[in-house]
């Protein structure tokens, strides 16, 4: 069994893993990082989105062995000195969630979106979130939340987790 060394939310883990173990199952079942859920089998829903070296990936479509030597950030590692990330704040303020199941992935994808494009138009936000499905909100308040976070982040010093 291959041995991997992964940094997840600022903590380094070393584990032997079966090659077929999905990153999301490694996070959930081995590390107890259950904040990242699974919603599909086919890379469509994006509920399992995490950041790998700062870029969004769908953790159900990456093997745990492929995360070896990489740095993973999940929804559980977003707080900065205990404070919510502006994107988390914005989803709350703008009612960008209902059941909340897509929310971790949606927030991670939104952070990635702003990293690429700090001042997106509504259309760019919608396109940037194409890989994340939500069944509750109709997306309108998610778009509003991302816009609001973009505004907030451009007016603050906050950048990224590390």
């Amino acid at each position: 069994m291959p041995r991997i060394k992964v940094e997840v939310d600022g903590v380094t883990y070393e584990d032997d893993v079966e090659p077929r173990l999905l990153l999301v199952h490694y996070l959930r079942d081995r590390l107890g990082k259950v904040g990242t859920p699974v919603g599909c089998d086919t890379t469509n829903c994006g509920a399992c989105t995490v950041l790998m070296d700062g870029m969004s990936v769908k953790s159900c479509s990456v093997l745990a062995v492929q995360a070896d030597t990489h740095d993973i950030t999940t929804i559980e590692g977003l707080r900065i000195n205990g404070a919510l990330h502006p994107m988390q704040e914005a989803f709350h303020s703008e009612h960008g969630l209902q059941c909340g199941y897509c929310t971790p992935g949606m927030i991670m994808a939104s952070i990635d979106l702003l990293r690429e494009n700090p001042d997106p138009s509504d259309e760019e936000i919608r396109e940037g979130l194409e890989g994340n499905l939500c069944r509750c909100t109709g997306y309108q308040n998610i778009v509003r939340a991302v816009r609001s976070a973009a505004h907030e982040m451009s007016h603050s010093e906050v950048t990224s987790h590390d």
Partner: peptide
């Protein structure tokens, strides 16, 4: 009123059934 339940949902501090071990 902004929703109280968001606090756990936006931080991944949730209890979905599959989370239970």
């Amino acid at each position: 009123r902004k929703r109280s339940e968001d606090a756990r949902l936006i931080t991944g501090n949730t209890q979905w059934t599959d989370n239970i071990q």
